[in-house]
Amino acid sequence: MSGALLLLADGRFPAGGHAHSGGVEVAVRAGLVKDADSLAAFLTGRLHTTGLTAAGLAAAAADGFDPTGLDEAADARTPSPALRATSRRLGRQLLRAARACWPDPVLDGLAAAHPGGAHQSVVLGLAARAAGLAPAEAALAAAHESVNGPATACTRLLGLDPYQVVAVLARLAPELDTVADAATRAAAEAVRRQDAWPLPAASAPLLDLFAERHSAWKVRLFAS
């Protein structure tokens, strides 16, 4: 059953992620991310904030929590309008790929209910469910996605040694497990209580700031 997880979490899964930097393009231009160490610090912060939040939403969706409620919870957890738009756009792109891979009436229903796109984390959870994956696997895929995209973007933006970058990701792997565990437990509690409150809502002020700045740039390499 992990075969589907590898497919879903693969950076080459055609869901649009390759064109997004997760804020790292701004951090690079601001001089805040400039080498493997500062990239590691960036990714650690991202993983434990928006990564954790996305993992919780994905796990809850995979655990059968009502997607409409999760979409509202995701909106409230995303104060930046630029990030809300990005998340919905990526959600729509992911849904396109997921429906091709794992045809499922639930995915069709989600597409119909959110023509402008549902939040990426919610789609990820439902795609995982359609693929027969467990909530913990959905959480892990979301946590992975939260750091893998920015790391790849950073390789392109800074021309970092790809072996250094992949080593940064390898050192983060145990923390991915920790975050996915916490997210999965929170999701189970949310499902048990039928309430999104237990889901993580972790945020990072600079990621919100970066996203708004990025959307105002005239010239940029990444879509976000």
């Binding site: 080459r12 899964f13 055609p14 869901a15 649009g16 992620g17 390759h18 064109a19 997004h20 930097s21 756009r89 729509r92 792109q93 396109r96 790929a97 973007a153 392109r156 933006l157 940029r220 390499l221 990444f222 879509a223």
Partner: peptide, 21 residues
């Protein structure tokens, strides 16, 4: 205009989702 993350051929060949959108 579609942003391509430094990699236009990915956007037109490997992951066409943004262009389809």
């Amino acid at each position: 205009a579609v942003e391509t993350g430094c990699c236009p051929h990915t956007a037109i060949r490997d992951d066409i989702s943004a262009n389809l959108e």
